[in-house]
Amino acid sequence: MSAGYQHYYVPHQSHWPIVGAIALFLMGFGAAHWVNDDFIGPILLTIGFGMLLLMLFGWFGNVIEESMSGLYSEQMDHSFRQGMSWFIFSEIMFFAAFFGALFYARMISVPWLDGAGDNAMTAAVLWPNFEAIWPLIKTPAGVETQAMPWEGIPLINTLILLASSVTLQFAHMGIEQQKPAQLGFFLMLTIILGFCFLALQGYEYVHAYEELGLRLDSGVYGNTFFLLTGFHGMHVTLGAIFLTVIFLRIAVKGHFTSEKHFGFQAAAWYWHFVDVVWLNLFVFVYVL
Protein backbone atom coordinates (compact mmCIF):
# COMPACT_ATOMS: atom_id res chain seq x y z
CA MET A 1 0.00 0.00 0.00
CA SER A 2 3.00 2.27 -0.08
CA ALA A 3 2.10 3.81 -3.41
CA GLY A 4 -1.01 5.54 -2.10
CA TYR A 5 -3.33 6.94 -4.67
CA GLN A 6 -2.15 10.52 -4.93
CA HIS A 7 -2.22 10.18 -8.68
CA TYR A 8 -5.24 8.02 -8.88
CA TYR A 9 -7.29 8.95 -11.87
CA VAL A 10 -11.04 9.21 -11.42
CA PRO A 11 -12.26 9.37 -14.99
CA HIS A 12 -14.63 12.03 -16.12
CA GLN A 13 -18.21 11.41 -16.92
CA SER A 14 -18.87 9.21 -19.86
CA HIS A 15 -21.92 8.42 -21.88
CA TRP A 16 -20.64 5.01 -22.93
CA PRO A 17 -21.91 3.06 -19.92
CA ILE A 18 -25.48 4.02 -20.50
CA VAL A 19 -25.13 3.39 -24.21
CA GLY A 20 -23.83 -0.05 -23.25
CA ALA A 21 -26.75 -0.63 -20.92
CA ILE A 22 -29.27 0.29 -23.59
CA ALA A 23 -27.43 -1.86 -26.10
CA LEU A 24 -27.66 -4.90 -23.87
CA PHE A 25 -31.29 -4.09 -23.12
CA LEU A 26 -32.11 -4.08 -26.82
CA MET A 27 -30.18 -7.27 -27.37
CA GLY A 28 -31.89 -9.09 -24.50
CA PHE A 29 -35.32 -7.80 -25.35
CA GLY A 30 -34.76 -8.50 -29.03
CA ALA A 31 -33.43 -12.00 -28.48
CA ALA A 32 -36.41 -12.81 -26.28
CA HIS A 33 -38.81 -11.66 -28.98
CA TRP A 34 -36.83 -13.56 -31.54
CA VAL A 35 -36.99 -16.96 -29.86
CA ASN A 36 -40.71 -16.40 -29.49
CA ASP A 37 -40.89 -15.90 -33.27
CA ASP A 38 -41.69 -12.24 -33.15
CA PHE A 39 -40.48 -10.32 -36.19
CA ILE A 40 -39.37 -7.34 -34.13
CA GLY A 41 -36.80 -9.50 -32.37
CA PRO A 42 -33.99 -9.72 -34.92
CA ILE A 43 -34.36 -6.01 -35.63
CA LEU A 44 -33.92 -5.01 -32.00
CA LEU A 45 -31.11 -7.50 -31.62
CA THR A 46 -29.23 -6.06 -34.58
CA ILE A 47 -29.65 -2.50 -33.42
CA GLY A 48 -28.51 -3.48 -29.95
CA PHE A 49 -25.51 -5.30 -31.29
CA GLY A 50 -24.54 -2.31 -33.38
CA MET A 51 -24.76 -0.08 -30.36
CA LEU A 52 -22.68 -2.52 -28.37
CA LEU A 53 -19.91 -2.43 -30.97
CA LEU A 54 -20.08 1.34 -31.03
CA MET A 55 -19.86 1.40 -27.27
CA LEU A 56 -16.89 -0.94 -27.21
CA PHE A 57 -15.02 1.16 -29.75
CA GLY A 58 -15.83 4.38 -28.02
CA TRP A 59 -15.15 3.18 -24.51
CA PHE A 60 -11.95 1.35 -25.23
CA GLY A 61 -10.92 4.26 -27.40
CA ASN A 62 -11.24 6.55 -24.40
CA VAL A 63 -9.38 4.19 -22.14
CA ILE A 64 -6.55 3.79 -24.61
CA GLU A 65 -6.32 7.52 -25.13
CA GLU A 66 -6.16 8.18 -21.42
CA SER A 67 -3.64 5.45 -20.93
CA MET A 68 -1.44 6.72 -23.77
CA SER A 69 -1.51 10.24 -22.43
CA GLY A 70 -0.07 8.89 -19.19
CA LEU A 71 -3.06 9.55 -16.95
CA TYR A 72 -2.95 6.13 -15.38
CA SER A 73 -0.90 5.41 -12.34
CA GLU A 74 0.51 2.08 -11.44
CA GLN A 75 -2.40 1.66 -9.08
CA MET A 76 -4.84 2.01 -11.94
CA ASP A 77 -2.90 -0.70 -13.70
CA HIS A 78 -3.36 -2.91 -10.63
CA SER A 79 -7.07 -2.27 -10.69
CA PHE A 80 -7.29 -3.31 -14.32
CA ARG A 81 -5.27 -6.44 -13.68
CA GLN A 82 -7.31 -7.50 -10.70
CA GLY A 83 -10.50 -6.68 -12.53
CA MET A 84 -9.44 -8.85 -15.43
CA SER A 85 -8.50 -11.72 -13.11
CA TRP A 86 -11.87 -11.66 -11.39
CA PHE A 87 -13.57 -11.49 -14.76
CA ILE A 88 -11.75 -14.63 -15.84
CA PHE A 89 -12.71 -16.28 -12.58
CA SER A 90 -16.36 -15.52 -13.29
CA GLU A 91 -15.97 -17.06 -16.73
CA ILE A 92 -14.52 -20.18 -15.16
CA MET A 93 -17.60 -20.46 -12.99
CA PHE A 94 -19.81 -20.05 -16.04
CA PHE A 95 -18.13 -23.02 -17.67
CA ALA A 96 -18.27 -24.86 -14.36
CA ALA A 97 -22.07 -24.83 -14.59
CA PHE A 98 -21.95 -26.64 -17.93
CA PHE A 99 -19.24 -29.04 -16.85
CA GLY A 100 -21.38 -29.71 -13.80
CA ALA A 101 -24.28 -30.58 -16.08
CA LEU A 102 -22.02 -32.88 -18.08
CA PHE A 103 -20.77 -34.72 -15.01
CA TYR A 104 -24.25 -34.96 -13.60
CA ALA A 105 -25.59 -36.45 -16.80
CA ARG A 106 -22.73 -38.91 -17.10
CA MET A 107 -22.45 -40.00 -13.51
CA ILE A 108 -25.98 -39.61 -12.22
CA SER A 109 -28.92 -39.13 -14.53
CA VAL A 110 -27.98 -41.55 -17.30
CA PRO A 111 -27.00 -44.42 -14.97
CA TRP A 112 -30.06 -43.79 -12.82
CA LEU A 113 -32.34 -44.05 -15.81
CA ASP A 114 -30.89 -47.49 -16.30
CA GLY A 115 -31.53 -48.48 -12.70
CA ALA A 116 -28.30 -47.58 -10.92
CA GLY A 117 -28.38 -46.65 -7.23
CA ASP A 118 -31.84 -47.25 -5.84
CA ASN A 119 -33.51 -46.62 -9.16
CA ALA A 120 -34.35 -50.16 -10.16
CA MET A 121 -38.01 -49.23 -10.53
CA THR A 122 -37.23 -46.21 -12.69
CA ALA A 123 -35.66 -48.50 -15.22
CA ALA A 124 -38.15 -51.33 -14.85
CA VAL A 125 -41.36 -49.31 -15.03
CA LEU A 126 -40.51 -46.24 -17.09
CA TRP A 127 -37.56 -47.05 -19.37
CA PRO A 128 -37.45 -50.84 -19.83
CA ASN A 129 -35.53 -50.61 -23.09
CA PHE A 130 -32.94 -48.06 -22.10
CA GLU A 131 -29.30 -48.88 -21.76
CA ALA A 132 -26.84 -46.54 -20.10
CA ILE A 133 -23.67 -45.98 -22.08
CA TRP A 134 -21.64 -42.88 -22.63
CA PRO A 135 -21.57 -41.26 -25.14
CA LEU A 136 -25.31 -41.57 -25.03
CA ILE A 137 -25.96 -42.74 -28.57
CA LYS A 138 -29.54 -43.71 -27.84
CA THR A 139 -31.67 -41.64 -25.50
CA PRO A 140 -34.37 -43.15 -23.28
CA ALA A 141 -36.94 -41.82 -25.74
CA GLY A 142 -35.07 -43.60 -28.53
CA VAL A 143 -33.37 -40.78 -30.41
CA GLU A 144 -30.21 -42.13 -31.98
CA THR A 145 -26.97 -40.45 -32.85
CA GLN A 146 -23.31 -41.27 -33.32
CA ALA A 147 -20.49 -40.30 -31.02
CA MET A 148 -17.85 -37.82 -32.04
CA PRO A 149 -14.46 -39.55 -32.02
CA TRP A 150 -11.55 -37.66 -30.56
CA GLU A 151 -8.82 -38.87 -32.84
CA GLY A 152 -9.46 -36.64 -35.83
CA ILE A 153 -10.22 -32.94 -35.77
CA PRO A 154 -10.48 -32.65 -32.00
CA LEU A 155 -6.94 -33.89 -31.60
CA ILE A 156 -5.64 -31.56 -34.29
CA ASN A 157 -7.52 -28.70 -32.67
CA THR A 158 -5.98 -29.51 -29.33
CA LEU A 159 -2.52 -29.32 -30.86
CA ILE A 160 -3.40 -26.08 -32.59
CA LEU A 161 -4.55 -24.44 -29.39
CA LEU A 162 -1.56 -25.70 -27.45
CA ALA A 163 0.73 -24.38 -30.14
CA SER A 164 -1.05 -21.04 -30.08
CA SER A 165 -0.40 -20.71 -26.37
CA VAL A 166 3.28 -21.30 -26.99
CA THR A 167 3.47 -18.82 -29.84
CA LEU A 168 1.69 -16.27 -27.71
CA GLN A 169 4.31 -16.78 -25.05
CA PHE A 170 7.00 -16.06 -27.65
CA ALA A 171 5.17 -12.92 -28.63
CA HIS A 172 5.12 -11.87 -25.02
CA MET A 173 8.84 -12.41 -24.77
CA GLY A 174 9.14 -10.29 -27.89
CA ILE A 175 7.37 -7.40 -26.24
CA GLU A 176 9.36 -7.67 -23.06
CA GLN A 177 12.70 -7.94 -24.80
CA GLN A 178 11.76 -5.18 -27.23
CA LYS A 179 12.00 -7.36 -30.31
CA PRO A 180 9.21 -5.99 -32.49
CA ALA A 181 9.75 -8.49 -35.28
CA GLN A 182 9.40 -11.46 -32.96
CA LEU A 183 6.37 -9.87 -31.33
CA GLY A 184 4.64 -9.21 -34.64
CA PHE A 185 5.39 -12.58 -36.14
CA PHE A 186 4.31 -14.67 -33.21
CA LEU A 187 1.26 -12.61 -32.45
CA MET A 188 0.19 -12.95 -36.06
CA LEU A 189 0.84 -16.67 -35.91
CA THR A 190 -1.27 -17.00 -32.75
CA ILE A 191 -4.16 -15.24 -34.40
CA ILE A 192 -3.90 -17.42 -37.48
CA LEU A 193 -3.87 -20.54 -35.34
CA GLY A 194 -6.93 -19.25 -33.52
CA PHE A 195 -8.87 -18.80 -36.72
CA CYS A 196 -7.71 -22.22 -37.97
CA PHE A 197 -9.16 -23.70 -34.82
CA LEU A 198 -12.44 -21.99 -35.47
CA ALA A 199 -12.58 -23.09 -39.07
CA LEU A 200 -11.96 -26.71 -38.11
CA GLN A 201 -14.53 -26.48 -35.36
CA GLY A 202 -17.05 -25.21 -37.89
CA TYR A 203 -16.19 -28.08 -40.18
CA GLU A 204 -16.62 -30.50 -37.30
CA TYR A 205 -20.10 -29.14 -36.56
CA VAL A 206 -21.16 -29.64 -40.16
CA HIS A 207 -19.79 -33.14 -40.03
CA ALA A 208 -21.66 -33.80 -36.78
CA TYR A 209 -24.96 -32.56 -38.14
CA GLU A 210 -24.78 -34.06 -41.59
CA GLU A 211 -22.98 -37.33 -41.13
CA LEU A 212 -23.19 -38.35 -37.48
CA GLY A 213 -26.70 -37.13 -36.78
CA LEU A 214 -25.25 -35.51 -33.69
CA ARG A 215 -27.36 -32.45 -33.05
CA LEU A 216 -28.19 -29.94 -30.39
CA ASP A 217 -31.44 -31.76 -29.77
CA SER A 218 -30.20 -35.33 -29.82
CA GLY A 219 -30.31 -35.87 -26.09
CA VAL A 220 -28.05 -34.90 -23.30
CA TYR A 221 -24.90 -35.99 -25.10
CA GLY A 222 -25.60 -33.63 -27.97
CA ASN A 223 -26.68 -30.84 -25.59
CA THR A 224 -23.56 -30.88 -23.53
CA PHE A 225 -21.37 -31.39 -26.57
CA PHE A 226 -22.72 -28.39 -28.43
CA LEU A 227 -23.16 -26.06 -25.52
CA LEU A 228 -19.69 -26.69 -24.12
CA THR A 229 -17.87 -26.58 -27.43
CA GLY A 230 -20.15 -23.78 -28.61
CA PHE A 231 -19.52 -21.50 -25.67
CA HIS A 232 -15.87 -22.34 -25.91
CA GLY A 233 -15.89 -21.47 -29.59
CA MET A 234 -17.51 -18.15 -28.78
CA HIS A 235 -14.73 -17.44 -26.35
CA VAL A 236 -12.10 -18.36 -28.92
CA THR A 237 -13.75 -15.96 -31.33
CA LEU A 238 -13.71 -13.18 -28.76
CA GLY A 239 -10.14 -13.96 -27.82
CA ALA A 240 -9.03 -13.96 -31.43
CA ILE A 241 -10.71 -10.62 -32.04
CA PHE A 242 -9.13 -9.27 -28.88
CA LEU A 243 -5.70 -10.40 -30.10
CA THR A 244 -6.35 -8.92 -33.53
CA VAL A 245 -7.14 -5.57 -32.00
CA ILE A 246 -3.94 -5.77 -29.98
CA PHE A 247 -2.05 -6.64 -33.13
CA LEU A 248 -3.45 -3.64 -34.94
CA ARG A 249 -2.67 -1.39 -32.01
CA ILE A 250 0.92 -2.58 -32.15
CA ALA A 251 1.33 -2.63 -35.91
CA VAL A 252 -0.60 0.50 -36.79
CA LYS A 253 -0.50 2.69 -33.73
CA GLY A 254 2.72 1.52 -32.17
CA HIS A 255 1.17 1.14 -28.71
CA PHE A 256 2.68 -0.72 -25.73
CA THR A 257 6.13 -0.61 -24.24
CA SER A 258 8.19 -3.35 -22.69
CA GLU A 259 7.01 -2.19 -19.23
CA LYS A 260 3.48 -1.12 -19.94
CA HIS A 261 1.43 -3.53 -22.00
CA PHE A 262 -1.51 -4.47 -19.88
CA GLY A 263 -3.81 -4.61 -22.92
CA PHE A 264 -1.58 -7.23 -24.42
CA GLN A 265 -1.39 -9.17 -21.20
CA ALA A 266 -5.12 -9.14 -20.65
CA ALA A 267 -5.60 -10.63 -24.09
CA ALA A 268 -2.94 -13.20 -23.36
CA TRP A 269 -4.49 -14.22 -20.05
CA TYR A 270 -7.79 -14.58 -21.75
CA TRP A 271 -6.25 -16.72 -24.46
CA HIS A 272 -4.56 -19.03 -21.96
CA PHE A 273 -7.80 -19.36 -20.06
CA VAL A 274 -9.63 -20.38 -23.22
CA ASP A 275 -6.87 -22.86 -23.86
CA VAL A 276 -7.21 -24.46 -20.45
CA VAL A 277 -10.96 -24.74 -20.87
CA TRP A 278 -10.35 -26.56 -24.12
CA LEU A 279 -8.01 -29.05 -22.50
CA ASN A 280 -10.75 -29.92 -20.04
CA LEU A 281 -13.22 -30.16 -22.85
CA PHE A 282 -10.97 -32.41 -24.83
CA VAL A 283 -10.58 -34.77 -21.94
CA PHE A 284 -14.14 -34.86 -20.66
CA VAL A 285 -16.22 -34.26 -23.76
CA TYR A 286 -14.20 -36.16 -26.33
CA VAL A 287 -11.75 -38.65 -24.87
CA LEU A 288 -13.30 -40.11 -21.75
Binding site: F98, A105, L216, D217, V220, G222, T224
Partner: peptide, 23 residues
Protein backbone atom coordinates in the same frame (compact mmCIF):
# COMPACT_ATOMS: atom_id res chain seq x y z
CA UNK B 1 -29.99 -24.25 -20.12
CA UNK B 2 -33.60 -23.36 -19.39
CA UNK B 3 -33.59 -21.25 -22.54
CA UNK B 4 -32.17 -24.00 -24.72
CA UNK B 5 -34.43 -26.63 -23.18
CA UNK B 6 -37.48 -24.56 -23.96
CA UNK B 7 -36.59 -23.13 -27.33
CA UNK B 8 -33.83 -25.25 -28.88
CA UNK B 9 -34.83 -28.79 -28.05
CA UNK B 10 -32.07 -29.67 -25.62
CA UNK B 11 -32.89 -32.02 -22.78
CA UNK B 12 -30.77 -31.07 -19.82
CA UNK B 13 -33.81 -31.32 -17.60
CA UNK B 14 -35.73 -33.94 -19.49
CA UNK B 15 -35.39 -37.62 -18.67
CA UNK B 16 -36.49 -38.66 -22.14
CA UNK B 17 -33.23 -37.22 -23.48
CA UNK B 18 -31.03 -38.52 -20.67
CA UNK B 19 -31.26 -35.41 -18.49
CA UNK B 20 -32.96 -34.93 -15.16
CA UNK B 21 -35.31 -32.26 -13.79
CA UNK B 22 -33.50 -32.60 -10.48
CA UNK B 23 -30.26 -31.58 -12.18
Amino acid sequence: MVLTDKYFGTSFFNAAGGGDPVM
